[in-house]
Design a protein around this nucleic acid. Sequence first.
DNA 1: TACATACGTCTCTTGTAAGAGACAATCGTA
DNA 2: TACGATTGTCTCTTACAAGAGACGTATGTA
Lengths: 266, 266
Amino acid sequence: MQDGETLTEWQAGSSDEERPANSREKGLNRALHILEFLHATQRAIGIGELAKGLNAPRSTTYTLVRELVGAGLLEMAGDGNRVYFGKKLYLYGMAYMRGNDLLRRGRQEVDTLSRETGETSELCMLQSGRYTIVHSSPGTRPFRISSATGLQIPLPWTASGRLLLAGLERSRIEAMISQDDLMLPDGRKIELDDFIDDIAKARVTGYCVTSGLVDAYTKCLAAPVFSTPGKIEATMCLVVPIDTSEDRTGELVALLRDRAARLSIS
Amino acid sequence: MQDGETLTEWQAGSSDEERPANSREKGLNRALHILEFLHATQRAIGIGELAKGLNAPRSTTYTLVRELVGAGLLEMAGDGNRVYFGKKLYLYGMAYMRGNDLLRRGRQEVDTLSRETGETSELCMLQSGRYTIVHSSPGTRPFRISSATGLQIPLPWTASGRLLLAGLERSRIEAMISQDDLMLPDGRKIELDDFIDDIAKARVTGYCVTSGLVDAYTKCLAAPVFSTPGKIEATMCLVVPIDTSEDRTGELVALLRDRAARLSIS
DNA sequence: TACATACGTCTCTTGTAAGAGACAATCGTA
DNA sequence: TACGATTGTCTCTTACAAGAGACGTATGTA
Protein backbone atom coordinates (compact mmCIF):
# COMPACT_ATOMS: atom_id res chain seq x y z
CA MET A 1 0.00 0.00 0.00
CA GLN A 2 1.02 3.63 -0.29
CA ASP A 3 2.40 5.77 2.47
CA GLY A 4 0.47 8.31 4.45
CA GLU A 5 1.15 11.12 2.00
CA THR A 6 -0.96 9.67 -0.76
CA LEU A 7 -3.87 9.45 1.57
CA THR A 8 -5.40 12.71 0.49
CA GLU A 9 -5.28 11.82 -3.16
CA TRP A 10 -7.73 9.01 -3.26
CA GLN A 11 -10.21 10.96 -1.23
CA ALA A 12 -13.83 10.79 -2.22
CA GLY A 13 -14.92 12.01 -5.61
CA SER A 14 -15.22 15.79 -5.78
CA SER A 15 -12.18 17.10 -7.58
CA ASP A 16 -11.87 20.48 -5.89
CA GLU A 17 -11.24 19.79 -2.22
CA GLU A 18 -10.14 22.58 0.05
CA ARG A 19 -7.44 21.55 2.49
CA PRO A 20 -7.60 23.92 5.46
CA ALA A 21 -5.26 22.04 7.80
CA ASN A 22 -4.96 18.70 9.45
CA SER A 23 -7.59 19.72 11.94
CA ARG A 24 -10.51 17.63 13.05
CA GLU A 25 -12.11 15.49 10.44
CA LYS A 26 -15.78 14.75 10.03
CA GLY A 27 -16.85 11.27 11.04
CA LEU A 28 -18.58 10.54 7.77
CA ASN A 29 -15.46 11.42 5.83
CA ARG A 30 -13.38 9.17 7.99
CA ALA A 31 -15.85 6.41 7.36
CA LEU A 32 -15.68 6.95 3.61
CA HIS A 33 -11.90 6.83 3.83
CA ILE A 34 -12.11 3.53 5.64
CA LEU A 35 -14.22 2.03 2.86
CA GLU A 36 -11.89 3.40 0.23
CA PHE A 37 -8.90 2.03 2.07
CA LEU A 38 -10.39 -1.44 2.33
CA HIS A 39 -11.21 -1.29 -1.35
CA ALA A 40 -7.58 -0.57 -2.07
CA THR A 41 -6.17 -3.28 0.18
CA GLN A 42 -8.70 -5.85 -0.98
CA ARG A 43 -8.45 -7.82 2.25
CA ALA A 44 -9.31 -7.72 5.92
CA ILE A 45 -7.12 -5.46 7.99
CA GLY A 46 -6.51 -4.81 11.70
CA ILE A 47 -8.04 -1.73 13.24
CA GLY A 48 -4.71 -0.41 14.42
CA GLU A 49 -3.22 -0.85 11.00
CA LEU A 50 -6.26 0.85 9.54
CA ALA A 51 -5.84 3.85 11.80
CA LYS A 52 -2.19 4.06 10.85
CA GLY A 53 -2.93 3.72 7.16
CA LEU A 54 -5.40 6.56 7.26
CA ASN A 55 -3.47 8.45 9.78
CA ALA A 56 -6.54 8.74 11.85
CA PRO A 57 -6.52 8.74 15.64
CA ARG A 58 -6.84 5.27 17.07
CA SER A 59 -9.72 6.04 19.38
CA THR A 60 -11.76 7.55 16.60
CA THR A 61 -11.05 4.64 14.32
CA TYR A 62 -12.23 2.16 16.92
CA THR A 63 -15.44 4.10 17.36
CA LEU A 64 -16.12 4.38 13.66
CA VAL A 65 -15.37 0.75 12.96
CA ARG A 66 -17.72 -0.23 15.76
CA GLU A 67 -20.47 1.87 14.23
CA LEU A 68 -19.91 0.58 10.74
CA VAL A 69 -19.80 -3.01 11.93
CA GLY A 70 -23.03 -2.37 13.81
CA ALA A 71 -24.60 -1.09 10.62
CA GLY A 72 -23.37 -4.12 8.69
CA LEU A 73 -21.24 -2.12 6.25
CA LEU A 74 -18.19 -3.77 7.77
CA GLU A 75 -17.68 -7.16 9.35
CA MET A 76 -15.11 -8.47 11.73
CA ALA A 77 -13.14 -10.99 9.73
CA GLY A 78 -12.82 -14.58 10.85
CA ASP A 79 -9.83 -14.53 13.16
CA GLY A 80 -11.19 -11.74 15.30
CA ASN A 81 -9.51 -8.37 15.08
CA ARG A 82 -9.54 -7.59 11.43
CA VAL A 83 -12.26 -5.83 9.49
CA TYR A 84 -13.45 -5.98 5.95
CA PHE A 85 -16.53 -5.11 3.93
CA GLY A 86 -19.85 -6.35 5.26
CA LYS A 87 -22.93 -8.01 3.92
CA LYS A 88 -24.87 -4.77 3.75
CA LEU A 89 -22.53 -3.44 1.12
CA TYR A 90 -23.16 -6.55 -0.91
CA LEU A 91 -26.90 -6.06 -0.62
CA TYR A 92 -26.68 -2.41 -1.54
CA GLY A 93 -24.46 -3.29 -4.44
CA MET A 94 -26.93 -5.82 -5.75
CA ALA A 95 -29.69 -3.26 -5.41
CA TYR A 96 -27.61 -0.86 -7.46
CA MET A 97 -27.13 -3.47 -10.12
CA ARG A 98 -30.81 -4.30 -10.24
CA GLY A 99 -31.67 -0.66 -10.75
CA ASN A 100 -29.07 -0.16 -13.44
CA ASP A 101 -29.99 -1.52 -16.85
CA LEU A 102 -26.67 -0.71 -18.44
CA LEU A 103 -24.71 -2.56 -15.81
CA ARG A 104 -27.01 -5.55 -15.73
CA ARG A 105 -27.09 -6.00 -19.46
CA GLY A 106 -23.45 -5.05 -19.80
CA ARG A 107 -22.40 -7.87 -17.52
CA GLN A 108 -24.32 -10.34 -19.62
CA GLU A 109 -22.87 -9.03 -22.86
CA VAL A 110 -19.38 -9.25 -21.44
CA ASP A 111 -19.92 -12.80 -20.25
CA THR A 112 -21.26 -14.00 -23.58
CA LEU A 113 -18.60 -12.14 -25.51
CA SER A 114 -15.80 -13.78 -23.60
CA ARG A 115 -17.47 -17.16 -23.95
CA GLU A 116 -17.84 -16.71 -27.69
CA THR A 117 -14.38 -15.39 -28.36
CA GLY A 118 -12.44 -17.15 -25.62
CA GLU A 119 -10.76 -13.85 -24.83
CA THR A 120 -10.87 -11.87 -21.63
CA SER A 121 -13.65 -9.30 -21.83
CA GLU A 122 -14.44 -6.33 -19.63
CA LEU A 123 -16.99 -3.65 -18.98
CA CYS A 124 -15.35 -0.37 -18.00
CA MET A 125 -16.57 2.95 -16.70
CA LEU A 126 -15.30 6.25 -15.46
CA GLN A 127 -15.55 6.25 -11.68
CA SER A 128 -14.69 9.49 -9.88
CA GLY A 129 -12.22 10.42 -12.56
CA ARG A 130 -10.57 7.03 -12.74
CA TYR A 131 -10.82 4.19 -15.19
CA THR A 132 -12.55 1.29 -13.49
CA ILE A 133 -13.16 -2.30 -14.46
CA VAL A 134 -16.78 -2.79 -13.52
CA HIS A 135 -17.07 -6.38 -14.65
CA SER A 136 -14.72 -8.81 -16.27
CA SER A 137 -14.97 -12.32 -17.60
CA PRO A 138 -11.75 -14.36 -17.80
CA GLY A 139 -11.64 -16.01 -21.20
CA THR A 140 -10.33 -19.50 -21.84
CA ARG A 141 -6.68 -18.99 -22.66
CA PRO A 142 -4.09 -20.91 -20.67
CA PHE A 143 -2.32 -17.72 -19.62
CA ARG A 144 -5.27 -15.62 -18.94
CA ILE A 145 -4.82 -11.99 -18.17
CA SER A 146 -7.03 -11.59 -15.18
CA SER A 147 -8.05 -8.26 -13.79
CA ALA A 148 -10.32 -7.96 -10.85
CA THR A 149 -13.56 -6.08 -10.79
CA GLY A 150 -13.12 -2.70 -9.21
CA LEU A 151 -9.52 -2.40 -10.27
CA GLN A 152 -8.58 1.14 -11.14
CA ILE A 153 -5.93 1.92 -13.69
CA PRO A 154 -4.63 5.26 -14.99
CA LEU A 155 -6.68 6.32 -18.01
CA PRO A 156 -3.72 6.74 -20.41
CA TRP A 157 -2.69 3.12 -20.01
CA THR A 158 -5.83 1.76 -21.63
CA ALA A 159 -7.79 1.78 -24.84
CA SER A 160 -11.00 2.26 -22.89
CA GLY A 161 -9.54 5.32 -21.24
CA ARG A 162 -9.21 6.98 -24.62
CA LEU A 163 -12.84 6.38 -25.41
CA LEU A 164 -14.19 7.32 -22.01
CA LEU A 165 -12.64 10.76 -22.29
CA ALA A 166 -13.85 11.37 -25.84
CA GLY A 167 -16.09 14.42 -25.92
CA LEU A 168 -14.57 16.14 -22.89
CA GLU A 169 -12.83 19.45 -23.29
CA ARG A 170 -9.06 19.47 -23.13
CA SER A 171 -9.02 21.29 -19.84
CA ARG A 172 -11.20 18.69 -18.15
CA ILE A 173 -8.96 15.95 -19.46
CA GLU A 174 -5.84 17.70 -18.23
CA ALA A 175 -7.39 18.08 -14.81
CA MET A 176 -8.05 14.37 -14.66
CA ILE A 177 -4.60 13.15 -15.65
CA SER A 178 -1.66 13.40 -13.31
CA GLN A 179 1.98 13.11 -14.31
CA ASP A 180 2.10 9.67 -12.72
CA ASP A 181 -0.75 8.53 -14.92
CA LEU A 182 1.32 9.27 -18.02
CA MET A 183 4.15 7.04 -16.84
CA LEU A 184 3.70 3.47 -18.03
CA PRO A 185 4.61 0.52 -15.82
CA ASP A 186 7.73 -0.17 -17.88
CA GLY A 187 9.01 3.38 -17.45
CA ARG A 188 8.03 4.84 -20.80
CA LYS A 189 6.19 8.13 -20.72
CA ILE A 190 3.13 9.02 -22.79
CA GLU A 191 3.01 12.60 -24.02
CA LEU A 192 -0.17 14.35 -22.97
CA ASP A 193 -0.62 15.74 -26.47
CA ASP A 194 -0.33 12.27 -28.01
CA PHE A 195 -2.87 11.02 -25.55
CA ILE A 196 -5.30 13.78 -26.38
CA ASP A 197 -4.78 13.11 -30.09
CA ASP A 198 -5.59 9.46 -29.47
CA ILE A 199 -8.78 10.49 -27.73
CA ALA A 200 -9.87 12.61 -30.66
CA LYS A 201 -9.06 9.79 -33.04
CA ALA A 202 -10.98 7.26 -30.98
CA ARG A 203 -13.94 9.59 -30.90
CA VAL A 204 -14.08 9.70 -34.68
CA THR A 205 -13.38 6.05 -35.49
CA GLY A 206 -15.66 4.75 -32.75
CA TYR A 207 -13.18 2.29 -31.31
CA CYS A 208 -9.66 2.12 -29.97
CA VAL A 209 -6.80 -0.38 -29.97
CA THR A 210 -3.68 -0.12 -27.85
CA SER A 211 -0.72 -2.49 -27.80
CA GLY A 212 1.71 -3.31 -25.04
CA LEU A 213 0.82 -0.45 -22.75
CA VAL A 214 -0.06 -2.03 -19.40
CA ASP A 215 2.19 -4.96 -20.17
CA ALA A 216 4.23 -6.14 -23.11
CA TYR A 217 2.13 -9.17 -23.95
CA THR A 218 -1.37 -7.85 -24.52
CA LYS A 219 -3.38 -5.76 -26.87
CA CYS A 220 -6.47 -3.94 -25.71
CA LEU A 221 -9.52 -3.42 -27.95
CA ALA A 222 -12.30 -1.13 -26.82
CA ALA A 223 -15.64 0.10 -28.12
CA PRO A 224 -17.92 2.76 -26.66
CA VAL A 225 -21.30 2.27 -25.01
CA PHE A 226 -23.51 5.34 -25.27
CA SER A 227 -26.14 6.35 -22.76
CA THR A 228 -27.60 9.32 -24.58
CA PRO A 229 -26.47 9.90 -28.16
CA GLY A 230 -22.97 11.29 -28.00
CA LYS A 231 -22.44 10.61 -24.31
CA ILE A 232 -20.11 7.66 -23.68
CA GLU A 233 -21.18 5.98 -20.48
CA ALA A 234 -18.98 2.92 -20.58
CA THR A 235 -16.81 0.78 -22.81
CA MET A 236 -16.65 -2.87 -23.60
CA CYS A 237 -13.21 -4.18 -24.18
CA LEU A 238 -11.25 -7.29 -25.06
CA VAL A 239 -7.77 -8.09 -23.82
CA VAL A 240 -5.94 -10.31 -26.33
CA PRO A 241 -2.38 -11.52 -26.88
CA ILE A 242 -0.29 -8.87 -28.55
CA ASP A 243 0.54 -11.18 -31.46
CA THR A 244 -3.08 -11.59 -32.47
CA SER A 245 -3.25 -11.30 -36.25
CA GLU A 246 -4.52 -8.21 -38.01
CA ASP A 247 -7.41 -10.17 -39.42
CA ARG A 248 -8.56 -11.62 -36.17
CA THR A 249 -8.15 -8.28 -34.44
CA GLY A 250 -10.35 -6.74 -37.10
CA GLU A 251 -13.00 -9.37 -36.60
CA LEU A 252 -12.93 -8.96 -32.87
CA VAL A 253 -13.21 -5.19 -33.12
CA ALA A 254 -16.20 -5.53 -35.40
CA LEU A 255 -17.87 -7.97 -33.01
CA LEU A 256 -17.04 -5.79 -30.05
CA ARG A 257 -18.45 -2.68 -31.66
CA ASP A 258 -21.62 -4.52 -32.51
CA ARG A 259 -22.13 -5.70 -28.95
CA ALA A 260 -21.31 -2.33 -27.49
CA ALA A 261 -23.78 -0.70 -29.85
CA ARG A 262 -26.42 -3.17 -28.77
CA LEU A 263 -25.88 -2.10 -25.21
CA SER A 264 -26.25 1.53 -26.16
CA ILE A 265 -29.82 1.26 -27.39
CA SER A 266 -31.01 1.35 -23.79
CA MET B 1 -43.38 2.78 2.74
CA GLN B 2 -43.95 3.15 6.44
CA ASP B 3 -44.70 6.32 8.33
CA GLY B 4 -42.20 8.30 10.32
CA GLU B 5 -42.75 6.32 13.51
CA THR B 6 -41.26 3.12 12.19
CA LEU B 7 -38.10 4.99 11.35
CA THR B 8 -36.32 4.04 14.52
CA GLU B 9 -36.97 0.35 14.10
CA TRP B 10 -34.92 -0.38 11.03
CA GLN B 11 -32.00 1.56 12.34
CA ALA B 12 -28.59 0.14 11.78
CA GLY B 13 -27.68 -3.18 13.28
CA SER B 14 -26.90 -2.96 16.94
CA SER B 15 -29.88 -4.19 18.86
CA ASP B 16 -29.48 -2.15 22.03
CA GLU B 17 -29.75 1.49 21.02
CA GLU B 18 -30.18 4.15 23.64
CA ARG B 19 -32.70 6.80 22.70
CA PRO B 20 -31.93 9.94 24.72
CA ALA B 21 -34.19 12.34 22.86
CA ASN B 22 -34.74 13.61 19.37
CA SER B 23 -31.70 15.80 19.72
CA ARG B 24 -28.94 16.22 17.19
CA GLU B 25 -27.99 13.17 15.19
CA LYS B 26 -24.53 12.24 14.05
CA GLY B 27 -23.85 12.69 10.37
CA LEU B 28 -22.64 9.17 9.88
CA ASN B 29 -25.82 7.77 11.36
CA ARG B 30 -27.92 9.95 9.14
CA ALA B 31 -25.95 8.68 6.19
CA LEU B 32 -26.50 5.07 7.22
CA HIS B 33 -30.20 5.79 7.53
CA ILE B 34 -30.21 7.17 4.02
CA LEU B 35 -28.69 3.98 2.65
CA GLU B 36 -31.13 1.87 4.64
CA PHE B 37 -34.03 3.95 3.39
CA LEU B 38 -33.00 3.60 -0.23
CA HIS B 39 -32.63 -0.13 0.30
CA ALA B 40 -36.19 -0.25 1.55
CA THR B 41 -37.69 1.86 -1.23
CA GLN B 42 -35.68 0.07 -3.93
CA ARG B 43 -35.79 3.05 -6.27
CA ALA B 44 -34.48 6.56 -6.77
CA ILE B 45 -36.07 9.16 -4.56
CA GLY B 46 -36.12 12.96 -4.33
CA ILE B 47 -34.01 14.61 -1.69
CA GLY B 48 -36.95 16.42 -0.15
CA GLU B 49 -38.90 13.22 0.03
CA LEU B 50 -35.87 11.53 1.54
CA ALA B 51 -35.60 14.14 4.26
CA LYS B 52 -39.28 13.75 5.00
CA GLY B 53 -39.06 9.98 5.07
CA LEU B 54 -36.23 10.04 7.57
CA ASN B 55 -37.55 13.03 9.37
CA ALA B 56 -34.23 14.63 9.00
CA PRO B 57 -33.77 18.37 8.52
CA ARG B 58 -33.74 19.33 4.89
CA SER B 59 -30.53 21.30 5.01
CA THR B 60 -28.67 18.43 6.60
CA THR B 61 -30.05 15.97 4.11
CA TYR B 62 -28.90 18.08 1.19
CA THR B 63 -25.42 18.29 2.66
CA LEU B 64 -25.15 14.59 3.32
CA VAL B 65 -26.49 13.60 -0.06
CA ARG B 66 -23.97 15.92 -1.68
CA GLU B 67 -21.17 14.27 0.25
CA LEU B 68 -22.33 10.76 -0.50
CA VAL B 69 -22.77 11.55 -4.16
CA GLY B 70 -19.29 13.01 -4.19
CA ALA B 71 -17.96 9.82 -2.70
CA GLY B 72 -19.83 7.74 -5.27
CA LEU B 73 -21.95 5.87 -2.73
CA LEU B 74 -24.98 7.59 -4.18
CA GLU B 75 -25.75 8.80 -7.67
CA MET B 76 -28.17 11.37 -8.96
CA ALA B 77 -30.69 9.37 -10.95
CA GLY B 78 -31.39 10.13 -14.59
CA ASP B 79 -34.01 12.86 -14.47
CA GLY B 80 -32.00 15.06 -12.16
CA ASN B 81 -33.20 15.46 -8.62
CA ARG B 82 -33.54 11.96 -7.38
CA VAL B 83 -30.86 9.87 -5.73
CA TYR B 84 -30.15 6.19 -5.54
CA PHE B 85 -27.27 3.88 -4.80
CA GLY B 86 -24.03 4.60 -6.60
CA LYS B 87 -21.37 2.64 -8.41
CA LYS B 88 -19.04 2.58 -5.43
CA LEU B 89 -21.49 0.49 -3.50
CA TYR B 90 -21.55 -1.99 -6.34
CA LEU B 91 -17.77 -2.16 -6.36
CA TYR B 92 -17.59 -2.58 -2.60
CA GLY B 93 -20.27 -5.23 -2.81
CA MET B 94 -18.34 -7.16 -5.42
CA ALA B 95 -15.23 -6.91 -3.29
CA TYR B 96 -17.19 -8.35 -0.39
CA MET B 97 -18.35 -11.22 -2.53
CA ARG B 98 -14.86 -11.93 -3.78
CA GLY B 99 -13.58 -12.11 -0.22
CA ASN B 100 -16.36 -14.34 0.96
CA ASP B 101 -16.07 -17.97 -0.01
CA LEU B 102 -19.41 -18.98 1.44
CA LEU B 103 -21.28 -16.36 -0.51
CA ARG B 104 -19.42 -16.97 -3.75
CA ARG B 105 -19.84 -20.71 -3.65
CA GLY B 106 -23.33 -20.40 -2.24
CA ARG B 107 -24.47 -18.38 -5.20
CA GLN B 108 -23.19 -21.04 -7.56
CA GLU B 109 -24.82 -23.86 -5.62
CA VAL B 110 -28.11 -22.02 -5.63
CA ASP B 111 -27.92 -21.38 -9.35
CA THR B 112 -27.16 -24.98 -10.20
CA LEU B 113 -29.75 -26.28 -7.77
CA SER B 114 -32.50 -24.23 -9.33
CA ARG B 115 -31.37 -25.23 -12.80
CA GLU B 116 -31.37 -28.91 -11.86
CA THR B 117 -34.69 -28.93 -10.04
CA GLY B 118 -36.49 -26.22 -11.94
CA GLU B 119 -37.59 -24.77 -8.62
CA THR B 120 -36.85 -21.39 -7.15
CA SER B 121 -33.80 -21.63 -4.94
CA GLU B 122 -32.37 -19.20 -2.44
CA LEU B 123 -29.40 -18.57 -0.19
CA CYS B 124 -30.45 -16.94 3.07
CA MET B 125 -28.65 -15.40 6.00
CA LEU B 126 -29.29 -13.60 9.22
CA GLN B 127 -28.58 -9.94 8.64
CA SER B 128 -28.79 -7.61 11.64
CA GLY B 129 -31.40 -9.80 13.24
CA ARG B 130 -33.51 -10.18 10.12
CA TYR B 131 -33.97 -12.99 7.66
CA THR B 132 -32.44 -11.90 4.38
CA ILE B 133 -32.45 -13.42 0.91
CA VAL B 134 -28.84 -13.05 -0.13
CA HIS B 135 -29.16 -14.67 -3.53
CA SER B 136 -32.01 -16.24 -5.41
CA SER B 137 -32.40 -18.04 -8.66
CA PRO B 138 -35.85 -18.04 -10.26
CA GLY B 139 -36.56 -21.59 -11.38
CA THR B 140 -38.42 -22.48 -14.54
CA ARG B 141 -42.05 -22.74 -13.50
CA PRO B 142 -44.63 -20.74 -15.41
CA PHE B 143 -45.81 -19.03 -12.23
CA ARG B 144 -42.53 -18.48 -10.58
CA ILE B 145 -42.38 -17.19 -7.08
CA SER B 146 -39.83 -14.49 -7.37
CA SER B 147 -38.19 -12.84 -4.43
CA ALA B 148 -35.59 -10.18 -4.81
CA THR B 149 -32.10 -10.34 -3.40
CA GLY B 150 -31.89 -8.31 -0.24
CA LEU B 151 -35.51 -8.81 0.63
CA GLN B 152 -36.06 -9.08 4.34
CA ILE B 153 -38.90 -11.12 5.80
CA PRO B 154 -39.87 -11.79 9.42
CA LEU B 155 -38.08 -14.89 10.65
CA PRO B 156 -41.19 -16.81 11.78
CA TRP B 157 -42.67 -16.73 8.28
CA THR B 158 -39.98 -18.93 6.82
CA ALA B 159 -38.40 -22.36 7.08
CA SER B 160 -34.95 -20.84 6.89
CA GLY B 161 -35.77 -18.59 9.81
CA ARG B 162 -36.29 -21.66 11.98
CA LEU B 163 -32.89 -23.01 11.08
CA LEU B 164 -31.02 -19.75 11.35
CA LEU B 165 -32.12 -19.37 14.95
CA ALA B 166 -31.27 -22.92 15.94
CA GLY B 167 -28.67 -22.90 18.67
CA LEU B 168 -29.57 -19.51 20.10
CA GLU B 169 -30.91 -19.23 23.63
CA ARG B 170 -34.58 -18.55 24.06
CA SER B 171 -33.97 -15.07 25.35
CA ARG B 172 -31.98 -14.05 22.30
CA ILE B 173 -34.70 -15.39 20.06
CA GLU B 174 -37.40 -13.53 21.96
CA ALA B 175 -35.41 -10.34 21.65
CA MET B 176 -35.24 -10.77 17.90
CA ILE B 177 -38.90 -11.42 17.26
CA SER B 178 -41.50 -8.68 17.50
CA GLN B 179 -45.23 -9.20 17.79
CA ASP B 180 -45.62 -8.06 14.18
CA ASP B 181 -43.25 -10.77 13.06
CA LEU B 182 -45.54 -13.43 14.48
CA MET B 183 -48.49 -12.16 12.45
CA LEU B 184 -48.67 -13.88 9.07
CA PRO B 185 -49.71 -11.96 5.94
CA ASP B 186 -53.11 -13.65 5.95
CA GLY B 187 -53.82 -12.57 9.52
CA ARG B 188 -53.09 -15.81 11.34
CA LYS B 189 -50.80 -15.58 14.33
CA ILE B 190 -47.92 -17.90 15.16
CA GLU B 191 -47.48 -18.67 18.83
CA LEU B 192 -44.01 -17.84 20.03
CA ASP B 193 -43.79 -21.17 21.85
CA ASP B 194 -44.72 -23.09 18.72
CA PHE B 195 -42.08 -21.18 16.83
CA ILE B 196 -39.42 -21.98 19.38
CA ASP B 197 -40.48 -25.63 19.32
CA ASP B 198 -40.09 -25.61 15.56
CA ILE B 199 -36.62 -24.19 15.93
CA ALA B 200 -35.59 -26.95 18.31
CA LYS B 201 -37.08 -29.55 15.99
CA ALA B 202 -35.28 -28.11 12.98
CA ARG B 203 -32.05 -28.14 14.91
CA VAL B 204 -32.35 -31.86 15.55
CA THR B 205 -33.63 -33.02 12.18
CA GLY B 206 -31.23 -30.82 10.24
CA TYR B 207 -33.83 -29.39 7.90
CA CYS B 208 -37.13 -27.60 7.93
CA VAL B 209 -40.28 -27.53 5.82
CA THR B 210 -43.07 -25.01 6.13
CA SER B 211 -46.31 -24.86 4.16
CA GLY B 212 -48.45 -21.91 3.22
CA LEU B 213 -46.94 -19.39 5.58
CA VAL B 214 -45.89 -16.45 3.44
CA ASP B 215 -48.58 -17.29 0.94
CA ALA B 216 -51.12 -20.06 0.46
CA TYR B 217 -49.55 -21.55 -2.65
CA THR B 218 -46.01 -22.41 -1.68
CA LYS B 219 -44.02 -24.73 0.49
CA CYS B 220 -40.60 -23.78 1.74
CA LEU B 221 -37.79 -26.32 2.21
CA ALA B 222 -34.62 -25.28 3.98
CA ALA B 223 -31.31 -26.87 4.97
CA PRO B 224 -28.53 -25.40 7.10
CA VAL B 225 -25.08 -24.32 6.00
CA PHE B 226 -22.51 -24.48 8.78
CA SER B 227 -19.49 -22.24 9.09
CA THR B 228 -17.88 -23.85 12.11
CA PRO B 229 -19.33 -27.15 13.32
CA GLY B 230 -22.58 -26.31 15.08
CA LYS B 231 -22.74 -22.71 13.94
CA ILE B 232 -25.36 -22.15 11.25
CA GLU B 233 -24.14 -19.39 8.99
CA ALA B 234 -26.74 -19.56 6.25
CA THR B 235 -29.44 -21.71 4.73
CA MET B 236 -30.18 -22.95 1.26
CA CYS B 237 -33.82 -23.20 0.48
CA LEU B 238 -36.27 -24.22 -2.21
CA VAL B 239 -39.66 -22.65 -2.76
CA VAL B 240 -42.03 -25.14 -4.35
CA PRO B 241 -45.77 -25.34 -5.06
CA ILE B 242 -47.69 -26.37 -1.97
CA ASP B 243 -49.17 -29.41 -3.71
CA THR B 244 -45.77 -30.95 -4.38
CA SER B 245 -46.03 -34.64 -3.56
CA GLU B 246 -44.56 -36.14 -0.41
CA ASP B 247 -42.16 -38.18 -2.50
CA ARG B 248 -40.81 -35.32 -4.51
CA THR B 249 -40.57 -33.14 -1.45
CA GLY B 250 -38.52 -35.82 0.21
CA GLU B 251 -36.22 -36.07 -2.78
CA LEU B 252 -35.78 -32.35 -2.92
CA VAL B 253 -35.02 -32.12 0.78
CA ALA B 254 -32.38 -34.82 0.43
CA LEU B 255 -30.79 -33.01 -2.49
CA LEU B 256 -30.95 -29.70 -0.70
CA ARG B 257 -29.33 -31.09 2.43
CA ASP B 258 -26.57 -32.59 0.37
CA ARG B 259 -25.82 -29.31 -1.36
CA ALA B 260 -25.98 -27.33 1.85
CA ALA B 261 -23.61 -29.79 3.48
CA ARG B 262 -21.22 -29.41 0.57
CA LEU B 263 -21.18 -25.68 1.18
CA SER B 264 -20.45 -26.21 4.84
CA ILE B 265 -17.08 -27.91 4.34
CA SER B 266 -15.48 -24.49 3.81
C1' DT C 1 12.04 -11.16 34.52
C1' DA C 2 12.15 -7.03 32.23
C1' DC C 3 11.13 -4.41 27.95
C1' DA C 4 8.84 -2.89 23.88
C1' DT C 5 4.57 -3.13 20.98
C1' DA C 6 -0.01 -3.74 19.99
C1' DC C 7 -4.72 -4.01 21.51
C1' DG C 8 -9.28 -2.32 23.33
C1' DT C 9 -11.65 0.85 26.50
C1' DC C 10 -12.45 5.19 28.91
C1' DT C 11 -12.47 10.18 30.14
C1' DC C 12 -12.45 14.96 29.21
C1' DT C 13 -12.02 19.26 26.11
C1' DT C 14 -12.93 22.02 22.42
C1' DG C 15 -13.40 22.75 17.55
C1' DT C 16 -17.05 22.09 14.48
C1' DA C 17 -20.76 20.03 12.12
C1' DA C 18 -25.91 19.43 12.70
C1' DG C 19 -29.71 21.89 12.41
C1' DA C 20 -33.16 25.97 12.42
C1' DG C 21 -34.65 29.02 9.44
C1' DA C 22 -34.46 32.73 5.99
C1' DC C 23 -34.01 33.39 1.05
C1' DA C 24 -34.70 33.28 -4.06
C1' DA C 25 -36.12 30.45 -7.84
C1' DT C 26 -39.28 27.36 -9.98
C1' DC C 27 -43.01 24.93 -10.29
C1' DG C 28 -48.21 23.74 -10.96
C1' DT C 29 -53.03 25.33 -10.76
C1' DA C 30 -56.89 28.16 -10.16
C1' DT D 1 -51.63 37.20 -11.95
C1' DA D 2 -51.68 35.52 -7.38
C1' DC D 3 -51.27 31.43 -4.50
C1' DG D 4 -49.10 27.53 -2.14
C1' DA D 5 -45.78 23.97 -2.40
C1' DT D 6 -41.16 22.38 -3.49
C1' DT D 7 -36.40 22.96 -4.56
C1' DG D 8 -31.59 24.26 -3.73
C1' DT D 9 -28.38 27.48 -1.22
C1' DC D 10 -26.73 30.15 2.63
C1' DT D 11 -25.87 31.91 7.44
C1' DC D 12 -25.35 31.49 12.29
C1' DT D 13 -25.56 29.04 16.95
C1' DT D 14 -24.62 25.58 20.14
C1' DA D 15 -24.92 20.76 21.28
C1' DC D 16 -21.96 17.31 20.72
C1' DA D 17 -18.63 14.26 18.33
C1' DA D 18 -13.61 14.00 17.16
C1' DG D 19 -9.55 13.51 19.14
C1' DA D 20 -5.59 13.45 22.72
C1' DG D 21 -4.00 10.61 25.89
C1' DA D 22 -4.03 7.70 29.97
C1' DC D 23 -5.02 3.03 31.45
C1' DG D 24 -4.92 -2.09 31.84
C1' DT D 25 -4.07 -6.14 29.27
C1' DA D 26 -1.94 -9.39 26.09
C1' DT D 27 1.45 -10.27 23.21
C1' DG D 28 6.42 -11.39 21.54
C1' DT D 29 11.63 -11.47 22.42
C1' DA D 30 15.97 -10.68 24.59
